[in-house]
Simulated scan of single mutants.
Amino acid sequence: MKGKPLIPFFLIAVAGLLLTLGLSLVGVNQQAGDGGEEEAAEQDPVEYGEEVAMENCVSCHGDNLEGASGPDLTTAGEKYSAEEIADIAQNGTGDMPSGIANAEEAQAIAEYLMSLSEE
């Protein structure tokens, strides 16, 4: 009885394992080099705040932050200090839940909303 050669199957298995290991290492390197927080630190805080607000705030405060189920944020800088805005963004108030933004994001949101009041 003639058996099937195992070498092609073995080579395919080894190639698959090496490919999996290689792709895993590439993913780890990309994740380690992502630098999302480093980029935020290097980026203009007002621009970063706008990005964060557009990701996290528009669902309740509307596409232009002029109010929807949440209040108008375009005039928040006239009503609150930057510290108060950052605190609200991080810790919530009233119907707004906490945890919407971390401390860095909350500060950036505050700077962005303060810039809207200056315009």
Rank of each mutant, 00 (worst) to 15 (best):
E84G: 04
A101L: 03
D95N: 15
P97L: 01
E50R: 12
T74M: 03
E66K: 14
L73A: 04
G92W: 08
T75H: 09
G27N: 15
L21C: 12
A106G: 01
S115E: 08
A86Q: 11
I100M: 12
L11A: 12
P97A: 10
A41F: 14
G33K: 10
G49R: 01
L73W: 11
L73N: 07
I100L: 15
L113F: 06
A89I: 05
M114I: 15
N102V: 02
E83I: 02
V26D: 08
N64D: 10
D72T: 08
A41W: 11
M114C: 06
Q107D: 10
E50K: 14
A82Y: 05
C60T: 01
I85D: 08
I7Y: 13
G94D: 12
E39A: 07
Q43D: 06
A103Y: 01
E42M: 11
G35F: 01
G92P: 13
M96E: 05
C57E: 04
A32F: 09
G22Q: 10
G35D: 09
G33L: 00
A108S: 03
V14I: 15
Y48M: 10
A82M: 07
E119G: 15
S98F: 03
V52L: 12
P45H: 08
V58E: 09
A82W: 01
E50M: 05
E83C: 02
V26E: 08
E38K: 15
G99E: 06
A40Y: 00
M96C: 03
S117F: 07
V14Q: 12
N64V: 01
E119K: 15
A86I: 03
A40D: 00
N56L: 12
E119N: 14
E118G: 01
L65Y: 02
G16S: 15
E118H: 02
I7Q: 12
A108Q: 00
G22C: 07
P45Y: 02
G92R: 14
G94T: 02
C57R: 11
L25Y: 03
N29L: 07
T75R: 08
G67F: 09
L73T: 04
Y112D: 04
E38F: 11
E104K: 11
E37Q: 09
G27Q: 14
S115L: 09
E42Y: 05
T74R: 09
V58T: 14
G22I: 08
E38S: 15
Y80E: 08
Q107E: 13
G67Q: 07
G35V: 03
E78Q: 14
F10D: 06
